[in-house]
Amino acid sequence: MKKTFKLIDLDCANCAAKMEAAIKKLDGVTDATVSFMTQKMTIEGDDARFDDIVKEAVKVCKKVEPDCEVVIK
């Protein structure tokens, strides 16, 4: 499964790179991109665990950038 999420208040490209690297290390993730320019995060991962992967990714984002909010539709 592959989904894109909008990010609010992502402050710098360096933070986006840190988030992307950390999300790629999560169990079940096959690919991830975090774009500072478009303020979007795309996660591709295991269908059966996708909800858990998204929750973990949100935690990672908060750890790197506490002010950043991930919009989950």
Results as ranks from 00 to 15, higher is better:
D47S: 12
G45Q: 04
C12G: 11
F36D: 06
C15T: 07
T30Q: 12
M41I: 07
G45P: 08
K6W: 04
A16E: 06
G28R: 11
V29C: 06
N14T: 11
T30S: 15
E44N: 13
S35C: 03
K40G: 01
A22E: 15
D47T: 11
S35D: 09
L26K: 11
D47R: 09
E20H: 09
G28I: 12
I43F: 03
K40V: 01
T30A: 06
V34D: 00
L10F: 04
D47N: 11
I23N: 02
T33D: 13
D11I: 00
L10G: 00
D11V: 00
M19L: 02
D9P: 01
E44G: 10
K40Q: 14
I23Q: 04
A13P: 12
K25M: 12
M41S: 08
A17N: 14
D9G: 06
K24G: 04
A32F: 03
A13Y: 10
F36N: 03
A48E: 15
I8F: 07
G28F: 13
R49A: 14
K6A: 13
T42I: 03
F50M: 06
D27K: 15
A21I: 10
A48M: 13
A32I: 02
F50C: 06
L26E: 11
D47V: 07
E44C: 04
A21F: 12
L26A: 07
K24L: 13
I43S: 02
A21E: 15
T38P: 08
V34M: 05
M19R: 00
D31C: 05
A17C: 07
F50K: 07
I8E: 13
K40I: 00
T33A: 13
K25V: 07
A13C: 12
K24Q: 12
K24A: 06
M19T: 00
